[in-house]
Design a protein around this nucleic acid. Structure first.
Length: 520
RNA sequence: UCCCCGGUAGCUCAGCUGGUAGAGCAGGCGGCUGUUAACCGCCUUGUCGCAGGUUCGAGUCCUGCCCGGGGAGCCA
């Protein structure tokens, strides 16, 4: 965050000296030494012919996913990837090669006829990068449709000693300490493919519904809704920053001439977009400097926030329902193999839960009614149920799992526990807010119709001890062509968690940031 | 931030009421096999998180700190 960006160095707590025991040769050094560069990839011209091993980078190449999707066996094939395991027999070696294009790897079969058999294949170890050429044939073995009978195997990048990933189950906790290698595991690889598919499904949905993708700012001067601690962005010197008359740090001297932060929400800006373009959505990084250490929180996460003009709470709930159904349906369809893996190995209910959201109509229950239902449920809840109190996770889950048995939208919450920008209902006591509850996790989406009436919004801002001056442009939107509008927000990682059944949110983002952790 | 649990070989862990460490996997060597978490035999590997303390003696007990996990709060 500081401008000088001095290199901090590697702390003592750094996990398992992955680089500690050997110098890292540069790409250039490797090239000089005649070693083909796996990472070179500047294009065909540079790598063509330079590889002593005969590898042509940048040439057309079929992923394992495509190879496995071939209509039938027969024909030449090239596999490029990383070795998961190797099994050596007397006159035969079996290499499980994976390239991340799909969960399955391809079994490469090598024998003494294979070029590179003695010098390369017999010395292969888990983790090395290789290229194998040969013919794709029907596999006589169990567990795979095709295999590659190799005519040649070339070592592209050796794995050296101490490669931490083994052909056995590792704890997610351990994998987090090697986040630079964990995408090579089945589970994290599957997570990242599902994550990718989900992101694309989200864009598809909104584009289909004529929402514009709006890029809201990362750096902001406004503390959107008082939503927790924010990260400060500054270029002032760490030591001896400029001071004002009162001795406080003088942010007039700072880069933006005022205190600035990383965004905690793009909602207020999304409203600007909605009141011009009718329907917009944001999908970007969001930051919270809360010291929360749980399986459901990150300091840096991705949030999705649609906002639409001429939309009321009922319309918003309908949008949220279409959204979840569409995204889940797409992911199940596009990630069949990965989802089957999660169901089998990670969370047996993963697909069932998604199906429930896709197939069942969502129930709508006003908060007031939800409280009444909970009160007469006879359940011994740990936390109290009373009008004016927020619903706890146990309440949410009982409502959706036990009482209704399908997703529930709880609407019209007490104003006292909701944010200033929510539309004040006629009863003066509640606001047009909603929470979408689903089985297994509870709240997955929160949103509201926004207060579009200037006087009421100003009054609420003051009542909550906020300064209307700070919201001048937000209030301007209510002065000039204000219309009813509504939007919701959801954490991207939370729905990836829901879909995959992964227990810890740190395992559904490639590079998790949590208090005390920003390695990688 | 609070509560609970944990930090022992590269990884996953065992080590009871204190007597200076062990298994499986990985790795090395050999064997065997169209194998697929392959199998069989032999072998190597530890500042027992860090710093103090109690004790003849501490992985084991005590204190502090660091780190991780689970739960809570906050939330997405």
């Amino acid at each position: 965050m500081w401008p000088g960006n001095q290199w901090i160095g590697i702390r003592g707590s750094r996990p398992r000296g992955v680089f500690a025991n050997r110098a890292r040769p540069t790409i250039a050094a490797l090239r000089d030494a005649g070693v083909p560069s796996a990472a070179g990839g500047r294009g065909v011209s540079e790598s063509k012919g330079t590889s002593g091993a005969g590898i042509e980078h940048g040439s057309e190449h079929e992923s394992i996913k495509r190879l496995l999707a071939r209509e039938g066996a027969g024909g030449e094939a090239v596999v490029r990837g990383w070795l998961r395991t190797v099994r050596h027999g007397k006159g035969v070696s079996f290499l499980d090669v994976s390239d991340g294009s799909c969960l399955a790897g391809l079994q490469v079969v090598a024998n003494p006829e294979t070029e590179g058999f003695e010098p390369v294949v017999r010395g292969l170890a888990t983790g090395c990068a290789l290229e194998a050429r040969g013919s794709l044939v029907d596999s006589p073995g169990q567990g795979q449709r095709y295999e590659l009978h190799a005519t040649s195997v070339v070592l592209v990048g050796d794995a050296g000693e101490g490669y931490p990933l083994q052909k056995k189950r590792h704890s997610f906790e351990f994998l987090r300490t090697i986040a630079h290698l964990r995408p090579r595991t089945n589970t994290i690889g599957a997570v990242l493919r599902v994550r990718n598919a989900a992101a694309m499904a989200i864009h598809d949905f909104f584009q289909r519904e004529e929402f514009l993708y709006l890029h809201t700012p990362i750096v902001t001067a406004s503390d959107a809704e008082g939503a927790g601690e924010m990260f400060r962005v500054t270029t002032l010197p760490e030591l001896d920053p400029p001071r004002d008359e009162s001795g406080a740090v003088d942010y007039r001297e700072d880069f933006f001439g005022r205190p600035t932060f990383l965004t905690v929400s793009g909602q207020l800006e999304a409203e600007i977009g909605a009141l011009a373009l009718s329907r917009v959505y944001t999908f970007g990084p969001t930051f919270r400097a809360e010291n929360s250490n749980t399986a459901r929180h990150l300091a840096e996460f991705w949030m999705i926030e649609p906002e639409a003009a001429f939309l009321d709470l009922a319309g918003l709930a309908a949008l949220a329902e279409r959204f979840l159904k569409s995204v889940f349906r797409d992911v199940l369809e596009r990630c069949e193999e990965d989802m089957a893996f999660f169901e089998k190995r990670v969370e047996s209910q993963a697909i069932v839960r998604m199906r429930k959201v896709i197939d069942e109509p969502f129930e709508r229950i006003p908060y007031r009614e939800a409280i009444a239902i909970l009160e007469r449920s006879g359940e011994a809840f740990e936390f109290p149920v009373r009008f004016g109190l927020d619903l706890q996770s146990e309440h949410e889950r009982w409502l959706t799992e036990q009482h209704v048995g399908r997703p529930v939208v709880v609407t019209d919450w007490p104003a006292s526990i909701k944010a200033f920008y929510m539309y004040r209902n006629d009863d003066e006591e509640t606001v047009a807010a909603m929470d979408v509850l689903v089985g297994g996790v509870g709240e997955i989406i929160g949103g509201s119709q926004r207060e579009h009436r200037l006087e009421i919004l100003e009054r609420t801002i003051r009542a909550q001890g906020l300064d209307p001056e700070h919201y001048w442009w937000y209030l301007d939107l209510r002065r000039y062509g204000s219309v009813p509008h509504a939007g919701f927000g959801l954490g991207f990682e939370r729905i990836v968690q829901f879909m995959t059944g992964m227990a810890n949110i740190r395992d559904v983002i490639p590079f998790p940031r949590t208090p005390g952790q920003a390695e990688f």
